[in-house]
Design a protein around this nucleic acid. Structure first.
Lengths: 360, 360
DNA sequence: AGGCGGTGCTAAATGCATTTACCACCGACT
DNA sequence: AGTCGGTGGTAAATGCATTTAGCACCGCCT
């Protein structure tokens, strides 16, 4: 607990040189002609005093704070957001940056405040980790502040990072088809009409697109589509219960997320259907939940951490506008029953999966 | 996207006064004698230019950055940590502070780096949200930097925020007892010997203490104690399965956390035992999971968000050393079967619960 | 006329690091 | 003797807001 930090002036004094010399030497400026002895003296003095530059003071001249802001509508509420933060933190640390985390709960007023607050602190860049692809109120913005959208797009800011939902949707179908499922496949959770302007739509639409295209290309069809507004376990339970009670030809469930799948498991189990044997389930997210289920749930993961990392990389590298699509990992567990791996569509799906894995 | 922010000098110029006047007036300094007109002109100028002070520059003189650091070993990994962060964020915002989040993964080297990094940025205070009550390596620390420990204690720093585990443990027992459970109560997950120096022990020991004291005071006993190292669903499943297969007098399960309880549910359901009717389950954490289960799991919540808030409050209020124990909420759902609410011990437990609720 | 106490405001220093614009000195060359 | 091109540095300005010390002026009193 020392009383105070030493300053550059202290270092210079101890080294018997000017602050200019100390600064130039410590920052390793090229094209500067100081004697080898001067270098030594300055470094020794800095080491002895445990000198560390005051980043705020430096920023005053350099306009670089080595800090970035992560502004999202939710942070702790969803596992999703915190994965994004984790990735961002990792990558930022690697680059010697520090991350200012802000939560807006999606309220425009708080959004504006958050932006002001981080701008007041001269952050080098801002990551907007919103879950909704919505237009943000944007106050006067210094041109030098870089922005990247995470899991969202905004016409105003070119750089965005998104999960590769299209490929993910295809992979889910391939997984089922590769195990031989060709009939009795139902979709749980999706409703194209209702989704029109839901917050999920931005990326989920691509998921559904991928999913449908892949089904079509493999010559398969959905025998049922059960939709609901929310995607919580009880919705999955109700939808699946109702579906299974209504018809007896259901062999595979494509759930829009793991929480729905959880509910589906409960409904199956109540009806004496063993997941992974009598019926298959595949879903999206790779929520922690997926590994808790018995049998383990096969799911297409949302690559949170990787996305967070990518966002920081793009932010700090001054990337050209465009969308960075992060591959969604296929997480195989034991919820898919093997029906027939030799059929035509099964073979084609297997090939597609293999190709996708190499590409990813 | 304006080119640049305006400075205090700009405001002063526009108002036709000196920067001194502008500063004094904008900061509402008392005992300063400027004309009403001067006040007006300065405020008008500031508003017109959208002036916002540069916090870094201000900090140079005031030594207050209006930023605090939240350093924890894990952030996204556990729901726990992110709840803490959420609370901290809320409270910090209220106080006009911004939060620098750092993750150390418990590695001492990263810890030291994180501390240096935030000290370089002159944070006003640091919250250590470690999950382990371990001694930290501490570099030279400016005396003015406040520190509070969150969910941990450290002899070096007096202020810490912890969940009131003792009371929580008692409440869990009361819940069971109040429903009439007097026999066949088993503890799932705890092993006093094995826990000796586990990271959980810091607070969990109090939980177990509370639990045992309450049992004793109500004249109840545990018929079994199944312990395990990890507290994941599969552990709960295995422990419970083995227990239920071994004996048929088990009527209530006290699980050390919700994930264990989840596993216990699976084991019960496999054996045809309906939770909330044939057997009762109560646990700790109030994980998201608890609400997903069928029937909903009654649990003693870990007050993450509240703890995070509390930590920031203490940090910014320059609190006296001491431990702040945050009450653990009782979250009643439907996993406790009613056996007999009129017995002596049930009545006493009911009274204790009621008293606790009023106190909390 | 000289002094005194307000009133209303400003100049300049300060915190810390960076950076631009020099300066002093030496040896060599003409 | 004067000049030129290094060599090895330094003084001072700068970025922005805060803060200390003090200035100019007015009316009033003696």
């Amino acid at each position: 607990m020392s009383a105070k930090r030493s300053t550059l002036a202290d270092v210079a004094r101890l080294a018997g040189l000017s602050p200019t010399a100390a600064s130039l030497i410590l920052n390793g400026k090229p094209d500067t002609r100081f004697s080898a002895e001067a270098h030594e003296r300055v470094h020794a003095a800095a080491a002895r005093l445990g000198y560390r530059p005051n980043i705020g003071a430096r920023a005053l001249r350099t306009d670089r704070t080595l800090s970035i802001a992560f502004i999202s509508d939710v942070v702790a509420t969803t596992r999703f957001a915190s994965g994004l933060i984790q990735g961002a933190l990792e990558e930022a640390e690697r680059a010697g940056h520090v991350v200012l985390v802000m939560e807006t709960r999606g309220e425009p007023a708080r959004e504006a405040e958050a932006i002001e607050a981080v701008l007041d602190r001269q952050v080098d860049g801002i990551i907007f980790g919103t879950m909704r692809a919505r237009e943000l109120f944007v106050p006067d913005f210094p041109d030098s502040t870089r922005v990247v959208m995470l899991n969202a797009t905004n016409p105003r800011y070119g750089v965005s990072v998104l999960p590769d939902e299209e490929a993910g949707g295809r992979a889910a179908v391939d997984l089922l088809a590769a195990a031989g499922h060709a009939e009795g496949i139902a979709l749980i959770g999706q409703n194209d009409e209702a989704e029109r302007d839901l917050f999920r739509s931005a990326t989920v639409a691509r998921r559904v697109n991928g999913l449908r295209s892949e089904l079509t290309e493999l010559g398969l069809t959905l025998v049922a589509e059960e939709s609901c507004w929310e995607w919580e376990p009880h919705n999955g339970y109700e939808l699946t219960a109702e579906l299974l009670d209504r018809r007896d030809d259901i062999r595979a469930l494509l759930c829009m997320n793991d929480r729905l799948a959880f509910g589906a498991y409960q409904a199956c189990s109540e009806r004496g259907l063993a997941v992974g044997r009598d019926i298959s389930v595949v879903s999206f997210d790779n929520d922690e939940l997926a590994s808790y289920l018995r049998p383990g749930l096969t799911t297409i993961g949302l690559p949170h951490v990787e996305m967070g990392r990518e966002a920081v990389k793009l932010l700090l590298s001054d990337a050209a506008p465009g969308q960075r699509l992060v591959p969604m990992p296929i997480v195989e567990r034991h919820s898919i029953a093997t029906v027939d791996t030799t059929s035509e569509s099964a073979r084609r799906a297997q090939a597609r999966l293999a190709a996708g894995r190499i590409a990813g």
